[in-house]
């Protein structure tokens, strides 16, 4: 990973990306992708969050394709 700019923002962004991966990837894969899979992330919250994220990605994809 290369950082161009303020390192402290990159640290926060990495934390956000780790959280995102924990939400959208199956636990078995996410555990390999992030340093530590969040112990307090249970299935209902994970499924709801993942569904919201995938829905937003799909919506943006459709909007972009139409534009």
């Amino acid at each position: 990973m290369l950082v161009d700019g303020d390192v402290s923002y990159a640290v926060r962004m990495t934390r956000v990306l780790n959280r995102l991966e924990s939400f959208i990837l199956p636990k078995i894969i996410a555990k390999r992708a992030v340093k530590e899979y969040p112990a307090n992330l249970h299935l209902p919250e994970k499924l709801i969050s993942a569904a919201q994220i995938y829905l937003k990605v799909a919506t943006h994809f459709v909007q972009t394709a139409r534009a």
Binding site: V7, S8, A10, V11, R12, T14
Partner: peptide, 8 residues
């Protein structure tokens, strides 16, 4: 400390 690069 939470924003320090080495924490990663």
């Amino acid at each position: 400390a939470m924003d320090d690069g080495s924490i990663m």
